[in-house]
Simulated scan of single mutants.
Amino acid sequence: MKTTLHVFVAVLISSATYAQHEHHQPAESETAKPKPKSPRQSAMAMVGDNHVHVDYGSPSVRGRQIWNGLVAYDQVWASGAHKATWIDFSQDVTINGKLVPKGKYGFFTIPGPKEWTLILSKDWDMHLADDYKPEQDIVRVQVKPEMHQNVTEALTYEVVPEGKKKGEIKMRWDKLSVSLPFQNK
């Protein structure tokens, strides 16, 4: 009987130890992932009957030099972090006098100190601008950046309706913004 009791106690202790060490349930703090430094964000609005949606990775300034630092001048930029920024129009639009059929497009930019090139590309699904090809461009627009006094810490997009027919997609980061105007067809 003593031997059976010792074996039974040994099995209980062994089971408890196994449960503690082998099947440890992590505490909530152990499973919590750190927040990404450039989270995916989206901006959208209705411009008349046209649903306009922008999806982008939103990095923060975090004390860095952004323009001609983190983001080089005169080079194609994915206009966000990680995957390329994309814009989806639910209806045909006109941009810079050119018809842009409804659909999803990559949004790329070529920043410069005094002028930027804003680009809509047929190719929207890529990491940064790694596979960017100019022959996929559907439209390019030259714009002057607008400078601001206050810093916008996280890269932010906004779809701004201007009545039922017109709108603009505004990108703002650090002390600068650029806008891509469009008109519903």
Rank of each mutant, 00 (worst) to 15 (best):
P34L: 13
E22K: 10
K37P: 06
V47N: 03
D55K: 14
V7R: 14
T17K: 04
N184I: 04
A78M: 11
A43S: 10
T85E: 07
G48F: 06
E158Q: 11
D131Q: 14
G106K: 05
R62G: 03
P181N: 02
R64M: 07
V100P: 01
V151C: 05
D49P: 07
L128A: 13
K33F: 09
T94Q: 09
M44F: 10
I87N: 02
G167K: 09
P111S: 02
F89T: 10
R64Y: 07
R172I: 13
T85Y: 05
N150A: 11
E115H: 06
S179R: 14
I110K: 07
G112I: 01
H24P: 04
A10W: 08
S58R: 02
A154F: 08
G57A: 01
D131M: 08
R62W: 09
G57T: 02
P111A: 05
H51I: 09
G48V: 04
D74M: 05
H51M: 12
P113E: 11
F108T: 00
D92N: 14
K166P: 03
P145R: 00
A43W: 05
S90R: 06
S90V: 05
E162N: 11
G80H: 06
P161W: 05
V93T: 09
S58H: 01
H24Y: 14
A154E: 11
G57D: 01
W124C: 03
A84R: 06
D174V: 02
S14R: 02
K165E: 13
Q183W: 04
Y56T: 04
D130H: 07
R172M: 12
W77E: 03
E168M: 10
V143W: 00
M147F: 07
D55R: 14
I169V: 15
G163I: 07
S90L: 07
E135W: 03
V52N: 01
S38D: 13
A78Q: 15
P181Q: 00
A10M: 13
Q75W: 06
N68F: 01
Y157E: 10
N184R: 02
K114L: 05
D125F: 12
I138D: 08
A19R: 11
W67A: 00
A72F: 07
Q20K: 12
S15M: 14
Q41F: 08
W116S: 00
P101C: 02
I95V: 15
I138W: 06
V143K: 00
Q149C: 00
V11K: 08
V7I: 15
W86C: 12
E158K: 10
G103S: 04
F107K: 00
L120Y: 01
S79M: 10
G167I: 08
H82Q: 11
K175D: 04
I119N: 05
L176W: 05
Q91W: 00
E168D: 07
P59F: 08
A129V: 01
P34A: 12
L120R: 02
Q183K: 12
H148S: 08
Q183T: 15
L99A: 10
R62E: 12
A19M: 14
S14C: 14
V160N: 08
I119C: 02
G167L: 07
W77R: 07
W86T: 13
W173F: 01
A10F: 15
E162L: 11
Q136C: 02
I110D: 00
K170N: 06
K144W: 04
E146R: 09
L180H: 02
M46N: 13
N68L: 01
W77Y: 04
